[in-house]
Deep mutational scan, measured.
Amino acid sequence: QVALSRTQVCGILREELFQGDAFHQSDTHIFIIMGASGDLAKKKIYPTIWWLFRDGLLPENTFIVGYARSRLTVADIRKQSEPFFKATPEEKLKLEDFFARNSYVAGQYDDAASYQRLNSHMNALHLGSQANRLFYLALPPTVYEAVTKNIHESCMSQIGWNRIIVEKPFGRDLQSSDRLSNHISSLFREDQIYRIDHYLGKEMVQNLMVLRFANRIFGPIWNRDNIACVILTFKEPFGTEGRGGYFDEFGIIRDVMQNHLLQMLCLVAMEKPASTNSDDVRDEKVKVLKCISEVQANNVVLGQYVGNPDGEGEATKGYLDDPTVPRGSTTATFAAVVLYVENERWDGVPFILRCGKALNERKAEVRLQFHDVAGDIFHQQCKRNELVIRVQPNEAVYTKMMTKKPGMFFNPEESELDLTYGNRYKNVKLPDAYERLILDVFCGSQMHFVRSDELREAWRIFTPLLHQIELEKPKPIPYIYGSRGPTEADELMKRVGFQYEGTYKWVNPHKL
């Protein structure tokens, strides 16, 4: 086992960053958080920038500027975001240094004079007029057009580079997404736009490419001749908990499936790229999406959770019991969808996408189930092999396979070949997804960000279904809070070829 401390991990990262040409360590950078008073800024962006600063992973002359409508001070920003920093008493001095680099400007999102004030403020910072500028839009999409237009007109660096990070949702359907994309691309070049999907920053999602293309053993079996089906799962054990009003506007397909799960599907299904260059990788992902037809209604199961009468606390409440959810809402909190990649490698292999709230566990994984062994000599005792990439929690890679049961006879039983990170790298604290992705933006690497043509294809696949749901308002199937979801989803999976045995229990190697 390799035991690495946080300091050692960050030392390795620093070495990698400083050796590259793309990370300008000594240049002045300004990180501007648009929507600095909001939840995302408070819980994710400010803490992430602090962790990067604490670990010495930001360029040395980096300033952080918050911008929002609320009249706040840096002290206010500190008060609301610091509880999420997880700072230790030993880091007190470092924390003071961090907040000394912070400033805040209040202004409207659609007022040109406010942006001119913001620009004057940035120019007044040390070497601010020639600094590289990175704008993070932690804002609702309704203000994107006004904000990007004003940034472009008043706040661009004339000497350094300018980059803009856009948070999902990128529209509600193909038409609104196209409108937003066309607007942003009329102001910024594609190499300046970073559409963030934080799932692409997760260690195991990034590991998929290495697993596939750096190991000879997987190449020959990664196709329709050997793989019976692919299941991509995202499960949350909690409901909307008072935030249903926002969720109800989008629903589970827009929230998770059309982005996170579809991105994971691309990494499983794509061909080997010409290189690890950002556009070479994204070219292959677009090719996969172009091979997927629009979702067919007979390959869809929609569910909505109801309270568990035997549960406790939140578990007793259904989705419609959330006071922020519109009365009688038919918005799905669970969806199972089957897609097919219609190309030579994957023809006929079902890709089953499942996601839901208020389920029995927290889990995100990719599961490849292989065909049955031909010419069975073990009297149907063999179960199908599976390769599982567990994204969260407890990152893991393992192969479910058959071995001989101890004893006199040739009785096979299920076991696993474990390729888990935790076994080799004991207690290594890896940077989280937002840390990686923000560092990628500083480096100018777009590999783990969504390109406009990729986004367009993703919406093309799901828009007809979303429009049909909005028009017909089908009643989702009720499922109990804390269950596996509607049984109809299991029946759909069985119908397209997935075999669920229920006889195997994964042993978490992190707890051995």
Rank of each mutant, 00 (worst) to 15 (best):
T420M: 07
L302R: 11
M264D: 02
M447W: 03
Y421E: 00
K473T: 13
H467Y: 11
L466S: 06
Y340A: 09
S293I: 05
D418F: 02
M401Q: 07
L267I: 11
L320T: 07
V388R: 05
T503G: 11
D440Y: 04
E457D: 08
K405H: 10
D490G: 08
V341Y: 01
N411W: 06
Y340M: 14
Q499E: 15
D418M: 04
R254V: 00
L320P: 06
E488H: 08
I352N: 00
N277P: 04
G407P: 03
D372F: 01
F410P: 12
A458S: 10
W346S: 04
K285M: 04
R384F: 01
K287W: 06
L262E: 06
A396I: 02
G356F: 02
G311Q: 11
D432Q: 10
G375Y: 11
D490T: 10
Y481C: 10
G485D: 00
I438L: 11
D255F: 03
F378V: 05
E454F: 06
N298A: 13
E344Y: 05
E312M: 13
V286K: 13
V441K: 05
V268I: 12
L471S: 14
F498L: 11
Q499P: 04
S452K: 11
E491V: 15
E472P: 06
L368K: 04
G303H: 03
P431S: 09
E491W: 12
W459K: 02
N299R: 10
R460C: 07
L471K: 15
F498T: 08
H260N: 04
M408D: 05
A335R: 04
Q369F: 01
I477T: 13
V450C: 04
E294K: 12
R367N: 02
E344S: 13
D321R: 06
D418T: 01
L387F: 08
Y319Q: 07
K405N: 13
W506V: 03
M264W: 01
P406F: 04
M408A: 06
V288K: 03
F410R: 09
V286P: 00
M447E: 00
G444C: 06
P474K: 13
V256E: 08
E416L: 00
C443S: 09
W346H: 03
K383C: 14
L419G: 06
R354T: 04
G444L: 01
V325L: 07
K404D: 04
A269V: 06
N394I: 06
S415G: 15
V301G: 00
F410M: 13
A315V: 15
N308C: 12
E365K: 02
M408N: 04
Q499G: 12
T503Y: 10
Q369A: 06
R345Y: 08
G311I: 09
L302Y: 10
E416V: 03
D283W: 06
E395L: 07
E501R: 10
H467E: 08
A335D: 01
D279I: 12
M402R: 00
V325G: 04
N298E: 12
Y434I: 02
K287Y: 06
P406D: 01
S275Q: 05
R424K: 14
K473W: 09
F449C: 01
E314M: 09
M493S: 14
G356W: 03
V288A: 10
Y340D: 05
A297G: 15
E386Y: 00
E472F: 11
K290M: 06
I253P: 00
A315I: 11
R495G: 12
T330S: 15
K473D: 10
P323T: 15
R390N: 14
E435G: 09
N423V: 12
L368D: 02
E416P: 02
C291Q: 13
H467A: 13
E395C: 08
V388K: 03
D347R: 13
A458Y: 02
F449K: 02
V281E: 04
R282K: 04
N343E: 05
Q258H: 02
A364K: 05
V341H: 02
Q499R: 12
V268L: 12
K426I: 07
R327E: 15
Y421T: 03
I377N: 09
V295K: 08
Y305K: 02
N394M: 09
L267A: 06
L265K: 02
F334L: 07
G307C: 10
L267M: 12
K400I: 06
R354I: 01
E488Q: 13
G318Y: 02
E491L: 10
L289D: 02
G422M: 14
V388Q: 01
R367H: 01
G328D: 15
N259M: 04
Y305P: 00
D310H: 15
K475T: 15
G444H: 07
E491S: 13
R384L: 00
E501M: 10
C355Y: 01
I253F: 06
D372E: 12
D322C: 07
K290V: 03
G444D: 08
E342K: 15
N394A: 08
D283E: 07
V388S: 06
Y434D: 01
T331V: 07
Q380V: 07
F449L: 04
F370M: 09
K285Y: 01
R345T: 14
F370V: 05
I389F: 06
G313E: 11
L359C: 12
N308F: 10
W346Y: 03
I389M: 09
V306W: 11
M493I: 15
L289V: 10
R254G: 02
P431Y: 10
E344N: 08
G311N: 14
P393T: 06
W459D: 01
C382W: 10
V428I: 10
D347L: 09
C443L: 10
N423G: 07
R327H: 12
T420R: 06
Y500L: 06
E271Q: 06
V428E: 15
E454N: 03
G444R: 08
D310M: 12
L359Q: 10
D280Y: 10
I438H: 01
V428C: 13
Q468D: 11
G497M: 05
Y340V: 08
H379Y: 13
V388N: 07
A332K: 00
A332V: 05
G375I: 06
R456M: 07
E491N: 12
S483C: 10
R390V: 08
G407M: 06
V338Y: 06
V428M: 10
M270F: 07
P486I: 06
K285I: 04
I352T: 05
G375M: 10
N308G: 08
K404I: 06
D283A: 04
P309K: 15
V496H: 13
Q446P: 04
P393W: 00
D280R: 09
L267Y: 01
Q380N: 14
L430T: 15
G444W: 01
Y504N: 05
L289G: 05
M493G: 14
Q369S: 05
